[in-house]
Design a protein around this nucleic acid. Structure first.
Lengths: 244, 244
DNA sequence: CAAATAGTGTCTGTCAGACAATATGCC
DNA sequence: GGCATATTGTCTGACAGACACTATTTG
């Protein structure tokens, strides 16, 4: 049976209600560590459990719009945030109350502030991505997919610049890669490689005001370039275990 | 407002109904050309227009399950078909009748048969991917995303073997790449490269019964190997225009 | 035999990674 | 001064793409 026949013979309003939500995997870097935004549920089911921020789509609201709204409600920020669709989840029993299909979104932003305290959830906070509490629903799976997507996208898109500020040094950019990938990178090789990718970064002509905290020369400042894809890509160190 | 508070204060059944459908971008290779499965709509809106096969999810049915069912209803095939989630679309006006959120799936299979004639739609047929009719709804966009995903996945996964038969020659595999990418590849270099990727293909020890139709030696036969990712990847010839 | 195809060998340029070297600025 | 960091240079091995070559089979 296909869509046209189905529509002809069925009134979907007669079906059990299907709810559509968006859930947001919001990532930021704070203090050199990758953090994820979580809210603490105030209601059953999973009351008290941490969960991804999200909620029902509203009439007349497009999906990315709903994701941006959910994120803005928790962080107060809507600008300078990169947001993209991740995947959808619709297992029949993923929410015990009713059939809920969730569209997940991935958001990246530089140094986001603490979540707005008095918004609505019991609590909202940034959690270190490597020390996560137990999550409600299937949010652990969604979050895992979001982290993996973020790691992948650093390879072939200039996404890392979305984690850095307006102007940044090559070392700061390297810190983003090291944080998200969780591996140390060779400073010299990284430096040369970044500058060899056309359109990744462009020089501002400026340098930092002073050297590093523990010494070193002033570093040149760059801003994001106009490349949408990195060519050649910055490949992660080989992950043999993922190949088979 | 987040999910918990929303649920506390709102009854989603009071909202205008939201319908959830799956739409399938099914790809196969027939006669050396990439083809897409389309059904012709019998009902308004877009009556007579071609569209992607798809339909409403059913109670108790998971999303991939629904996609596999829709595909099987049109092709009669469910085995040897690779299927994966593509993206979701939920613009408020994408279906003029009501709010419809569609989860799209991508399916690949070797030489699928003609669609089942008397199934249900006004008509169902394979269309060449380079000669598509005007499509209903936002299906042109969905289909475009599906084709792009397929091209990408050939680069870093052994997906091409899903388009080939159980046993295949390197030349047949090359034809898959050339068809999906739409570019000619160098036979000698391709041959050497395929064999250099660990786990991509494994030899069966057999050869074809005879040489090619227009001459040439018998080719060795291979089957798909156990690699899930290609390392190193088979990169498409550089696409400068896509970088910026 | 001519043409087409399978499969291999060689060469060159690019690039990643290891390592070294130099310069600058904080303590 | 001693140390950490920024930036550049050198070398090596892997690999992609161009090209050439041999062997095999069809018509």
């Amino acid at each position: 049976m296909n869509e046209s026949e189905f529509l002809a013979g069925y009134d979907p309003r007669a079906y059990p209600a299907v709810a559509v939500t968006v859930d947001v995997v919001a990532l930021t870097i704070r203090g050199g560590e990758l953090h994820v935004l979580l809210v603490q549920r105030g209601e059953q089911p999973y009351a008290g459990r941490w969960a991804l921020p999200g909620g029902f789509i509203r009439p007349g609201e497009d999906l990315p719009e709903a994701a941006a709204r959910e994120l803005a409600e928790e962080t107060g920020l809507a600008e300078r945030v990169h947001i993209e669709q991740l995947a959808s989840y619709g297992a029949p029993e993923r929410d015990p109350r009713m059939r809920v299909v969730s569209i997940s979104y991935l958001a990246f932003a530089p140094g986001l502030p603490d979540p707005r305290a008095g918004s609505d959830a019991a609590d909202a906070a940034w959690h270190r991505a490597d020390r996560l509490p137990e999550l409600a629903f299937d949010h652990e799976r969604i979050l895992g997919n979001g982290l993996e997507r973020a790691r992948d996208k650093l390879e072939y898109t200039p996404l890392a610049t979305a984690f850095a500020g307006e102007r940044f040094t090559i070392s700061e950019l390297r810190a983003v890669y090291e944080t998200v990938w969780g591996v140390p990178l060779h400073a010299g090789n990284f430096h040369r490689k970044i500058l060899s990718v056309p359109g990744f970064v462009e020089s501002t002509g400026e340098t930092t005001e002073s050297g590093g905290a523990r010494g070193g020369p002033r570093a040149k400042l760059y801003r994001a370039g106009d490349a949408r894809l990195l060519h050649p890509a910055l490949l992660r160190p080989a992950r043999e275990e993922e190949v088979r």
